[in-house]
Write a protein that binds this DNA or RNA. Structure first.
Lengths: 186, 186
DNA sequence: AAGATCATGTAAATCGTTACATGATTGT
DNA sequence: ACAATCATGTAACGATTTACATGATCTT
């Protein structure tokens, strides 16, 4: 029934950073921070929280104020902290990735060149939008000088650098394809 | 029973490029071409091939020579070609990615800074190995001047650019963390 | 009063990976 | 003969996404 492995640690980690949180807030927080490299859905969060509680890695916090919404707020137990730390020191695994754009480009010779060019243009537009979002987040984060925000900045910087690289790659790929197109017409 | 969606098209596409192939060769081919952004296992390939055959998108090829190994060789049917083309012209979806290294770095403040630095150093080493492999493949591919190899080069170029960017990011992140380490010691 | 969003969950479908299983063929 | 690798598959498991379901609370 319960979910396991990676999702567990993501949720445990977020909970460690937020000190205490509900499943709902956990998700909202991930959306504005780890979304780019890690996301969870409610359908995984709630069962995982239940499971973590059963494992005594987290506990429900008694609400100090009574006029709070009916929601479950959790925090890590000392065992939860240890479990998280043990996971953090293990070398991360490279996770398999699938990139549909690249797959379609790889098969590009089967369809007209314009199809691939269009895919690339669309991708570039989306990347530019993402870039400006990330830049804004970076500006806000840069004001903060805690160690925690340094780690946020490092992961964000990964995103920005890769987006910039992707945009350059798109431009170059479009250029190459257009020149190939010219040659086949002649 | 059968596998579906993305895997189907990946296999259909590879089959289109190879003209005809066995499941085994399909896999070997992907290992030396699409591995970086798309891989399939035998456990998905064989059921998908069976399923594609049932859908009449591919057919078994009668072997011309008798001294061939006992293996099933498939090729696309006209319907298979159409199905593939229809998929290729649809805008690719951005697929969700999970990056465990980034997740662990994001939670970096929970463990000593050296832990994160070690993760980054290990990552950098792996990236350098990958880079030299990709460079070699690129050199070989560059000799060929077909349209098909242009598409291969474009996807490979994506890989190379992103690896270079990742290495730079690793270096920078390590630098930032070391400087933060100095400051916390003082 | 209505609509947005807060808040938590279940069930089913999908999907992919790992382990298991088997046997033929080729090269040394 | 033996090892490598060719070649095809099944079964079980693990994990995630989508759809479904419900109701409270806040805002206008």
């Amino acid at each position: 029934m319960a979910k396991s492995s990676k999702s567990q640690f993501a949720i445990l980690g977020m909970l460690a950073i937020l000190k205490k949180s509900s499943g709902y807030d956990l998700k909202k927080h991930m959306e504005s921070s780890t979304q780019y490299f890690w996301k969870e859905t409610f359908s995984s969060i709630y069962p995982v929280l239940e499971d973590l509680e059963k494992q005594k890695l987290i506990v429900k916090v008694k609400k100090p104020t009574q006029n709070d919404r009916k929601r479950n707020i959790y925090k890590l137990t000392p065992e939860g902290h240890n479990t998280l730390k043990n996971w953090l020191i293990q070398p991360p695994e490279d996770m398999q990735l699938r990139n549909e754009l690249l797959l379609k480009l790889f098969f590009g010779a089967i369809v007209p060149i314009e199809v691939s060019i269009e895919h690339l243009k669309k991708q570039k537009k989306e990347l530019k939008n993402k870039l400006s979002t990330y830049q804004k987040i970076k500006n806000k984060l840069s004001e903060n000088h805690s160690l925690e925000s340094l780690y946020s900045l490092i992961t964000l910087d990964h995103g920005i650098r890769h987006i910039l690289t992707s945009i350059e790659w798109c431009d170059n790929a479009i250029k190459e394809l257009k020149s190939a197109e010219q040659q086949t017409i002649k």
